[in-house]
Design a protein around this nucleic acid. Structure first.
Lengths: 219, 219
DNA sequence: TAATATATTTAGATTAGTCTAAAAAAATAT
DNA sequence: ATATTTTTTTAGACTAATCTAAATATATTA
């Protein structure tokens, strides 16, 4: 048995070691979980006893295959529920994270399987993040940052790096969403800002923004 | 704030005082919650301090309007999710209770509202139980027990009193489901068993069964 | 390499929810 | 109306998850 809280720790550890490509440290986990380092140490002992992580004092942690399975399954459920909320219930992409954060803890194998089927076995969620399959395998694809495009390039938005709700709402306001076609009209050498056309409308995007958007080149 | 566990207690109290038409006793709650009477007493103090119940030592408990609101909202969510599971994900009515028991705790007003809309504002769940609206009001309707019908009566199944999974699967096996049309062919005076026609097939039903099925008379 | 800074763990306490065993109150029966 | 049974509460302890403050390891830098 794995508790709600343990599941959240495993997901945090997964996320951190995925990003940093090395064992997750106590402080990093504390920050991700919004708790104290002392609490993390306590939890690491528990997770270690249950065989979910490989843990040595002061050395950071790695997930065991058992722990990794739980973490990817949570990510799978999280992203499937986000897809459900957007595709079926008509939520916008900036409003689904907190709800999916709760729904990912629902325990039922058959529910996930039926949900996946109902959604048509989606490979990517409403933010363009890959949805692992039942075996925990992620679909890989070529994706580059919008900031790397040059004048006259054409591309389609296929994902976002930043998931902050305010950022997503900013994109909504500029009509930038998954599937949007953009054409680079101008690129400013000095501040790297761009002027692009989205759905026939010109908008100016700072580098801070263009570095958070994944695209696929077009034509 | 109300915790997961507190919510379950409130629902248990609601259920018991609804059935017995009087304040819920400690033992009854303990049985419903599958815990000890001592734990219940502890929890009643907490719920009372939070203003969810009216509690006097040894006198049993009643929900306050605040507590009642929480309980009916849980029932609303439970029944909406059961409807979702059956109508959209193709679950059978005997397999949805435990999953809905988890889903009812998801906290999001707008989610419930959108789910309700997505399902077409259903008034009854897959077991024929009424789904309270956002104000906690239940739709009432005439429903009688199948056991009360007489020879040659025609009726439609609109609900079940018993929710046990095995009972529901028994009904499945006889093709008895919500909306099924039944005709009473014969009624045995001695043991009150009946022979009825369902979807053109004759089946024999003991009184134990017919006392658990709600119907609406037809023609 | 010694001094300093940072990261991590330990110690000890707290809260929610649970337990068993014993005490007390209320209900029932003789 | 007294004795017995049932119901409920209290007492005291346990676990999971958390906290702050202090101690100890490790890493960094002069």
């Amino acid at each position: 048995m794995v508790t709600h809280t343990e599941e959240n720790y495993l997901k945090a550890i997964y996320k951190i070691s995925e990003k940093d490509k090395k064992p997750a440290g106590t402080n990093a986990i504390a920050k991700e979980m919004d708790t104290s380092a002392a609490s993390v140490t306590d939890m690491l002992k528990r997770l270690s006893e249950k065989g979910f992580i490989k843990y040595q004092k002061y050395k950071g942690v790695n997930l065991s295959s058992k722990g990794s399975k739980i973490a990817t399954n949570l990510i799978r459920k999280h992203r499937l529920w986000e897809s459900f909320l957007v595709d079926k219930l008509d939520f916008t992409w900036d409003a689904v994270h907190d709800i999916a954060e709760q729904m990912e803890h629902i325990k039922s194998e058959v529910l996930v399987q039926k949900l996946d089927e109902y959604l048509g076995f989606p490979k990517f969620d409403p933010h363009g993040d890959p949805i692992p399959n039942a075996d925990g395998k992620f679909t890989l694809r070529v994706q580059i940052l919008l900031s790397l495009l040059r004048k006259n390039d054409k591309a389609v938005i296929i994902g976002v790096k930043e998931h902050d709700d305010d950022f997503l709402r900013f994109l909504n306001s500029k009509n930038l969403q998954l599937g949007s076609k953009v054409i680079i009209i101008e690129k400013n050498d000095y501040d790297k800002s761009m002027t692009v056309t989205v759905e026939g409308v010109q908008v100016m995007l700072s580098e801070k923004i263009t570095k958070q958007i994944y695209v696929k080149k077009h034509e």
